[in-house]
Design a protein around this nucleic acid. Structure first.
Lengths: 186, 186
DNA sequence: TTACACATGTAAAAGGTTACATGATTCG
DNA sequence: CGAATCATGTAACCTTTTACATGTGTAA
C-alpha cells in the first residue's frame, strides 16, 4: 500500500518515467523506502489504470523513448487523502542483526570481519546522506523553506546511520578485546 | 530466507512451540525481526519437513496440547553454515516517513498530532527495550558473559529509539513554531 | 458473561525479489 | 571491444499480511 504513495509523492514533485523514478528512489528516498525497477513499472501501470496518473510518451533521440507519468487530479486527491490517515509503524527486519544474535556460533575474528564490512557500508551510506543534505542547503532559501518538512526524513537517516556506526565501533572494540584475550589465553 | 534462521536461533537457545516462538519474537527480538503466528507455524512445518527440527507433542492439562520443536544436528549445522555467510543489508521501509516526506499536503497541526502519536509509541518501545536490558543485567555474570553478543542488537535498538525520539522532539518544536507563526500571521 | 490467554491451523491476496529478455548509445 | 547507462518489460517465485476457523481455561 505504501509504495504507491511513495511513487505519487515523487511524481507530485516532478513527473518522470519508471527509470527516472527508480533512480530518484535511490538518490533521494532510499533512507526510508526502496523498490526495484520492476516494482516501479508494475505500480505505474496500476496507477495509470486506476486513473491516478497521466502518461505521455516522450520521443528522445540517441536514447530509448520514455513514458513520462504525472499526477491527475484524482491522483493528487488520493495522495492528500492518504497523507491525512494514520501510518503504520515501521517493521524492522535486519538479517545482519540475526547474525549478531547468533554470533556465538562464529569465531570472534570472523564476526569482526563481517562487522567491519557492514560498518564500511554504513559509513558510505552516511557520506551519501550528508552529501544530499549539503545539496539541500545549497538550494535557494525559498525552496528550503517550502521543502523543509520533506527534508526531515533525511535528517533522521543521518542520525540513524551515526548511531549505527557508534554502536558498531563499540562492538568492534569489544571483539578486539575478546580476540586479544584468546591470543593471551591460548 | 532470514526468518528461518531467526527461528532456528531462538530454538537453539530453548525449544518451544509456534505460540511460544511468536511471543519470544515479540519479547526478545522485536527490535530486529517480527513475524506473525501464521509465519511461525508455516516455517516450523517446513523446517520439520526438511529434517532441521524435531517435534514432540506435549500433553498439557487445562491447556491445549502443544508441539515443542527443537533443533536436530542438521538444524544446528544449517544455522552454523548460515551465520558464517555474509548477510544482506537492512532494507528500510517506513510508511510514516513517506507521510512526512509528503507532509506539505497536511496542515501543521495535523502533522503535529500524527508525530505526537508516533512519538509516544517510540517512547513505549524504548521503555520496553530498557526493561529488557535491565533484565539482562540481572542475570548471573556467567550468563551475561556467554550471551553478551546476542545482547548487542538490543543495545542498538535502544540507541536507535533514542535517536528517533530526539529527531521527533526537534521536529515537534519546529512544527510548534510553524503553528505559532500561522496564528500570529492569521 | 465477556474478554483474554493459550494453542494450532487454512486460504487468499498483496507485496517484493530474482531471473530472463531486448536493444541503442556512450565511455574507457 | 567490453562495460555501463538508458529504457521497458514478462514470468516465476518467495515472503508477508489479512481474514477465517476452532476450541479450552481463567480472571474480572
Amino acid at each position: 500500500m505504501s509504495l504507491r504513495f511513495a511513487v505519487l509523492s515523487l511524481l507530485d514533485i516532478e513527473p518522470g518515467s519508471g527509470y527516472d523514478l527508480k533512480r530518484r528512489f535511490e538518490r533521494s528516498v532510499h533512507h526510508f523506502w526502496s523498490a526495484s525497477h520492476q516494482q516501479m513499472y508494475r505500480e505505474l501501470h496500476k496507477l495509470h489504470g486506476e486513473g491516478l496518473l497521466d502518461c505521455v510518451e516522450e520521443i528522445q533521440d540517441g536514447r530509448p523513448d520514455k513514458k513520462v507519468y504525472s499526477l491527475t487530479a484524482a491522483g493528487r486527491g488520493a495522495l492528500e487523502a492518504w497523507v491525512a490517515k494514520p501510518a503504520a509503524a515501521q517493521k524492522i527486519r535486519d538479517p545482519f542483526l540475526i547474525q549478531v544474535f547468533a554470533g556465538h556460533h562464529l569465531p570472534p575474528a570472523q564476526m569482526r570481519a563481517e562487522l567491519q564490512r557492514h560498518l564500511s557500508e554504513h559509513r558510505d551510506k552516511l557520506a551519501t546522506y550528508e552529501a544530499q543534505n549539503a545539496r539541500f542547503y545549497r538550494r535557494p532559501a525559498e525552496q528550503q523553506q517550502k521543502l523543509w518538512i520533506s527534508h526531515q526524513p533525511l535528517l533522521l537517516g543521518i542520525e540513524t546511520e551515526k548511531t549505527w556506526i557508534r554502536w558498531a565501533e563499540q562492538l568492534l572494540a569489544r571483539l578486539d578485546a575478546e580476540i586479544a584475550d584468546r591470543d593471551t589465553a591460548g
